[in-house]
Design a protein around this nucleic acid. Structure first.
Lengths: 209, 209
DNA sequence: CACCCTATGTAACAATTGTTACACTATTGG
DNA sequence: CCAATAGTGTAACAATTGTTACATAGGGTG
């Protein structure tokens, strides 16, 4: 049992007894940047609670195409895992650590009773749904209403926001994958953004100005 | 208090006491095809439970562009209303009756306690979230991964499914609005689908073959 | 240093989608 | 019946996005 976790749970306004239960039945999971917490088709019986770091949530279709949905950061939890677990359906999305992250995995089996028993936990779960819903809608806005150059710029700004850094360490190829387009298109539009003075490019790295 | 409602509540596997509460604190709302149950920016303190008919849920952006998300049909409820109400935020989506529909409006205020008190209601709410989440993801798949001709055909099939009819009574203009494109594009692609023998066109009406 | 692999730049072209303009037809209301 | 309006068909063109192909540059390794 980690001090960081204990501290984290204190900060969530959870009932003391709930905190005890969370401590007892959860387990720590450290995950290194780039590896997956949830993979498509991988059934899971635990719900990840993000203590530190961040997870990148992506949707994928049958033929391997994928698209970035949103980031989960400290204090977030994965609403899709919840619904997924409840139906024990296979997930059509993945959650990948963007940076080294610490998770507190809580068993799905407890969820139902905690929601009934602890108002603070109920609030937490509903809040999570609300946030994820909003983020999904924002993702829809991007693909439905915006052109690729706007989507790209928004993507960069989101990434800056999530990482708290002006430097984005990704290749054009990686960005293209997350926006479901091709590398050439991204290179073209990044060059355009650079000409507009919005970014500065380096190898494997983009600076947001 | 309507016989249809009573019947409906019986069929949901709700606890008898919950059914009583739902009957007592809800109210009937009949709505004619084309009118809105929820409009963007309209705050609401009630959650609609669809008894019969169907609601079309659309997302809109700031400059009036919009896109179809999914249908709510008998037995469904609007998860976005729930989260929306809980945060008493303005809704960035609308729900419009596709056909004459009957709703049972339940006060948001009761939700929290019912979720705590009635396992069946808890299940119902989580199930609603799960379904809406899935539908949002499906909507994302459409706009993110499919070309307009596929999206259009999928749209027609969804509509057929939701209405239970092979006839779709919509103009090209209306369809264009729901897919966030232009009338000319829809006319072009519908003609294409007709040539492929997938549909048959008439004025104000399309037959799915 | 030579070699290799990855990342980026760029041109040329194709496919898709969006826009404008106008013709024609069906329906409606006087 | 006539005029007005709404719905559809179609062509021509523009803008955006996708694809292919190849050049160049940076960084690491033997």
């Amino acid at each position: 049992m980690n001090e960081q976790i204990a501290q984290f749970l204190q900060n969530q306004n959870f009932e003391p007894q709930l905190i005890e239960e969370l401590k007892l039945s959860g387990r720590l999971k450290k995950i290194t940047a780039g590896s997956a917490v949830i993979k498509p088709g991988m059934p899971t019986s635990e719900i990840p609670l993000v203590i530190s770091g961040s997870l990148k949530v992506m949707r994928q279709d049958e033929d391997g195409k994928e698209i970035f949905l949103y980031y989960l950061e400290g204090g977030d939890t994965c609403a899709m895992s919840i619904t997924c677990c409840m139906e024990s359906k296979k997930s059509a999305f993945s959650a990948i650590a963007e940076e080294d992250s610490t998770l507190w995995m809580i068993p799905m089996a407890m969820l139902n009773s905690w929601v009934a028993k602890y108002p603070a936990f109920r609030k937490f779960v509903f809040q999570a749904y609300q946030n994820r819903f909003d983020e999904l809608l924002t993702a829809i806005d991007s693909v439905a209403f915006m052109k690729m150059d706007e989507r790209l710029y928004k993507y960069l700004l989101d990434k800056k926001q999530a990482s708290g850094s002006f430097e984005i360490k990704k290749t054009h190829e990686q960005i293209a994958r997350e926006l479901n387009t091709s590398r050439v298109v991204i290179s073209r539009l990044l060059k355009q953004l650079e000409n507009e003075g919005k970014i500065e490019q380096h190898r494997n790295k983009i600076d947001i100005l």
